[in-house]
Amino acid sequence: MSETVLPSFSARIVERLSVGATSRRERVIHSLDGLEDPVHPDALANSGAHLWRLLQEQAPDGLTSVDFLLGLDAGGILPTISLAGAARLPYKIAWKLHLPLDGAVRFSEPHAMRTDVFAYGITPGQRTVIVDDEITTGRTLADLTHRLREAGAVPLAAACLVEDTTRGARDLLSDLGLPLVSLTTIEGAA
């Protein structure tokens, strides 16, 4: 039986052709988003396993007591599911849906067309790892971190597939005591 050789994870920045007034003009695309090439399920699983190993190495304190991963809707769903599978952890997804559900935490994604995002079922003492596909400025995750802490939850770390190293996200999150772990980095147009 022949072995399937999977391409390594890659990411790059492309210009968006249609953007709103508050949206970023560029978009990070990567080899797991299925935009350019089909994605083999093993590539998704391997990326989740690699990201979990990095999290354990770079943010080991408290990762043995994670209650769940909290992924951000749209781009954060795939890395959340792949990381949940590798870590054998449950997950929740924060959505841009305002619903009458308990434990609502509202936070902002300032560069999006629709800026309000909601995480539900958040209760005091819950220990989470926040997951997204890309991190640029870090403002969304910083606001989410503040709102989770106000609700009594404990964000332990942030994990992403791609970190833009030119916009200060790592420093912003570090100042909040939230380690940032990324599968790869890129240098965006500052």
Rank of each mutant, 00 (worst) to 15 (best):
M1H: 12
S2Y: 04
L6G: 07
P7M: 09
S8N: 14
S8F: 07
F9M: 10
S10F: 10
I13K: 02
S18R: 15
S18W: 15
A21Q: 13
R24A: 07
V28Q: 04
I29G: 00
I29Y: 01
L32Q: 06
G34E: 09
G34V: 01
G34K: 08
L35Q: 10
H40Y: 14
P41T: 13
D42G: 14
A43N: 09
L44A: 15
A45G: 13
N46L: 14
G48R: 05
H50D: 15
W52G: 05
R53L: 13
L54P: 00
L54A: 10
P60N: 10
G62Q: 08
T64V: 11
D67I: 04
F68S: 05
F68M: 05
L69N: 01
G71C: 03
L72Q: 03
G76P: 02
G76W: 00
I77V: 15
P79H: 07
I81E: 07
I81A: 09
S82A: 15
L83W: 02
A87W: 01
L89D: 01
P90V: 05
K92L: 10
I93T: 06
K96Q: 12
L99D: 13
L99G: 12
L101Q: 10
E109V: 12
P110C: 08
H111P: 02
H111D: 08
A112E: 08
R114G: 13
R114C: 05
D116E: 15
F118C: 11
A119V: 03
G121T: 03
G125A: 09
T128D: 00
D132H: 09
I135Y: 00
R139E: 14
R139P: 03
R149P: 03
E150T: 08
A153N: 01
E163T: 08
D164S: 09
T166C: 09
G168C: 04
A169N: 05
R170Y: 05
D171R: 06
V181I: 14
T185S: 15
T185G: 03
T185R: 10
T185K: 11
E187G: 07
A189V: 06
A189L: 12
